[in-house]
Simulated assay, not measured.
Amino acid sequence: MPRPEGFAYDAYASGTVRITHHGRPATTLHGPRAARFLAEVEGSQHQLVMARWTGNYKRGNERGARDHPRNRR
Rank of each mutant, 00 (worst) to 15 (best):
N71K: 07
F37V: 13
R63N: 11
S14W: 08
R52K: 09
P2K: 14
L48S: 15
E5S: 08
R63I: 13
S14F: 10
R70T: 12
D10V: 04
T27K: 09
A11D: 04
I19L: 15
D10G: 02
A11K: 03
Y12W: 11
K58D: 13
G55I: 00
F37H: 11
R33C: 01
R33M: 05
R24W: 09
L29Q: 01
G31V: 10
S44Q: 07
G23R: 07
T16Y: 00
V41K: 01
H68K: 15
A51H: 03
R63W: 10
N71I: 03
A34C: 09
D10M: 02
G23M: 04
Q47F: 07
A11T: 05
D10R: 12
D67A: 14
V17I: 08
S14L: 12
A26M: 02
G15N: 07
V49W: 01
A8M: 03
Q47R: 09
Q47C: 06
V49G: 09
F37K: 08
G23F: 02
V17Q: 00
D10W: 00
E5K: 07
R52L: 03
R36V: 06
R33Q: 11
N56I: 15
G60V: 05
R33A: 07
H22Q: 11
H22P: 06
P4R: 06
R70H: 11
R66N: 13
R72I: 15
T54V: 02
F37M: 12
R72D: 06
R59S: 10
A51W: 04
E40Q: 08
W53S: 01
H46L: 15
I19Y: 08
Y9N: 10
D10A: 09
K58A: 11
T16H: 01
E62H: 08
D67H: 13
G6H: 01
G60R: 06
R33V: 04
A51V: 11
Q45W: 07
R63P: 06
N71M: 04
R59Y: 06
R52C: 02
N56W: 12
K58S: 11
N61L: 05
S14N: 15
M50F: 07
E40F: 00
G60E: 05
R36M: 09
G6R: 02
T20W: 02
R18W: 03
R52G: 03
M1I: 09
E40R: 01
W53K: 02
P2Y: 13
A65K: 13
Y9V: 07
G55V: 00
P69Y: 12
R72V: 14
V17P: 00
E5D: 06
V49S: 04
F37N: 10
Q45N: 14
A13T: 15
M50L: 08
H21T: 01
G64S: 10
R24S: 12
H46T: 13
G15F: 10
N71Q: 06
A11W: 00
R52N: 04
G60W: 04
A65E: 08
R24I: 09
H46V: 14
R36I: 05
E62D: 13
A13Q: 15
A51F: 08
H30L: 12
T54P: 02
R66E: 15
L29M: 14
R24A: 14
F7W: 01
E42G: 06
Y12F: 15
M50W: 05
M1N: 09
A11F: 02
H21N: 01
A26Q: 01
N56V: 12
A34H: 03
R36D: 11
E62Y: 09
Y57Q: 06
R24K: 14
